[in-house]
Structure formats: structure tokens, C-alpha cells
Amino acid sequence: MSALLEVSGLAVAFGGVRAVRGVSFSVDEGQTLAIVGESGSGKSLSSLAVLGLLPAQARVAAGSVRWDGQDLLALEADELRRLRGEELAMIFQDPLSALNPALTVGYQVGEMYRRRRGFGREQAKRQAIEAMTEVGIPDAARRADAYPHEFSGGMRQRVMIAIALALRPRLLIADEPTTALDVTVQAQILRLLRRLQRDGLAMIIISHDLGVVARTAQSVVVMYAGQAVESGTVADVYPAPAHPYTLGLMAASPSARDGGRQVRPIDGYPPDLSSLPGGCTFHPRCPFARERCRTEEPTLRQVAPGRASACHYAEEVLARGAAVDHAGA
């Protein structure tokens, strides 16, 4: 059985740099996949490549993106444009820069219905108000006549979600959807996303925040320096990571829940993508690194049912993670 979205061996070249090097993941209806990584890991480029929205300097160098059986990379630009909105949609970190400050919010939400459904102005507005209500914008009929600057950050992100979901797409890609929001507002948006997922929407959440991922996703891909270094279900990966980088990220994430746990930094800095270290790209920062890691690049391999890790010593890491069990709660 094939998944709704299946990405395999995706590689993206950005300028002269191999920014994404062979990333694979899949998402099913009603499921949320998280792509986790720090800046420069390639997590955003991977998702932009799926939608054909790569910036001008970037191009897909290899791999395939299959959506419901068809190859998205082979589609003509206008076919892909039709699919975006109808079937796949995306929201970004900064909703203010994505909205036109000179047009009312209702008009912008209604645009999807006018352009794609051929609705008249009045009918589009009625639909827009309905869509805004659905994502939890109170008093939508009145608020539809307001401009983006009159909305708070959280309400603007709801507007973006209303626009993204206007044509009832089956997949929503959310790139750092709550990073710019206050924590109490973030909680509201995350709850909305969870509700949408329960209603059957497939989602990809791109985030640097392991806490946000813990609250929303069922499965996770961890990226480092353009590669997927670990993948699996959240319930498998979180308690016992199978890659030293994942283990390090978990230990470095400060927690509001657990007062007993001291954060431990990862030594060193992420590599420069234009001059990657030989062997495993993580080896200069890795506490598990040995001679083999400096020369031989590990490939992502299955280490347990439904789990993969790109580490020569994944089994050892797994055992360590399980032993540490930083759970507490």
C-alpha cells in the first residue's frame, strides 16, 4: 500500500551547495509527520521542493515526489499550480508577510473561491466567513472587513490556515507555524492543527522545536546538514533515539516540565554545507565517533521495525538512550 505523499531520495542543490542530500519520507491521511532540524539542515527546502516552490537559485537534483500515485516533479508548472491549494497547501512562520496589507482579510480568504471556484464576490465572502469561523476566528462576519494589521499574530496565522484550507486540500505543510507566536497563542494554534488532523488532514510540520513536535506529530524525520539522520514514530524515537544527533538534541532542549534534567549542549558548530567533513557529517561533534566515522559515510538503514538511523553505531546509541531514559514524568 502506498502513502498519500511519498518522497524518496530527494536532493536539492542551492547555488553550488548540496543543501538536501537524499531525503525520504511519507505521510498518510490523518497523520502528521514532523521534519525536525536546526537552521541550515535542509528541512524547509525539502518541503518547498515537494510543492515546487523552491527559490530561484535552488533546483531538485535527484529523487521523486509521488502524490497519490502521480509524480509531482514531472508535472507542468500550471498543473502543479492547480494541485497547490486544491490538494496540497502550505503555511509559513510569518503570516504578516504573506498577507496583503491593503486588502481586507475576508477578500483575501475569498480570493481562493473567486479564482478557483469562479464564485461571485458576495458568495466568495460568505464562504470566506465560513472558513474563518471554522478555524476559530470569533465574530468572523465582522472581522472579514478588517485589514491584516488589525489582527493579532495568532489570528493572522488562523487567517493563513483558513486560506490554505479553503479548497479542502488533503495535505497541509506547516513551516514553523507557531515559532513567531506567544506560548499561550501557540497552544491555541497547535490544538487547531490537532483537530484538523483528527478530521483526516495529512500534515507535515517543519520545526526546530522538539516540544512542538511532541505535541503534534506521530512520526518524525530528523535532519542534519542536508540529510535525514533518523526517522521513526515519535513514540519510538523520543524515549530512545537511534542517532547521536537526535540524542544530543533531546539533551540540549530545555524543558519546562522536568526540573531535574540538566541540559547538555552539543559540542562544536554545524558544518559549512560547502565544505562538509568527510565520513559522517556529524562526526566532529559526536561523542560516539570512531575511526570508521571519519572515513566512511553511513547510510540511513533500518535499525528496528519502522525505524531508521544513519549511524554506524546506531544499536549502541539505542541501548544508551534506553538506559538513560530521560523520562521522569
Binding site: 499561550t184 501557540q186 511532541a214 519546562a256 523520562a327
Partner: peptide, 10 residues
């Protein structure tokens, strides 16, 4: 209660 934490996967 709103602050997302690594432990929340449970």
C-alpha cells in the same frame, strides 16, 4: 501548561 516540552510525547 501551554509550554511544549520534549516530554509531551507521552
Amino acid at each position: 501548561s501551554a509550554a511544549p516540552s520534549v516530554e509531551d510525547w507521552r
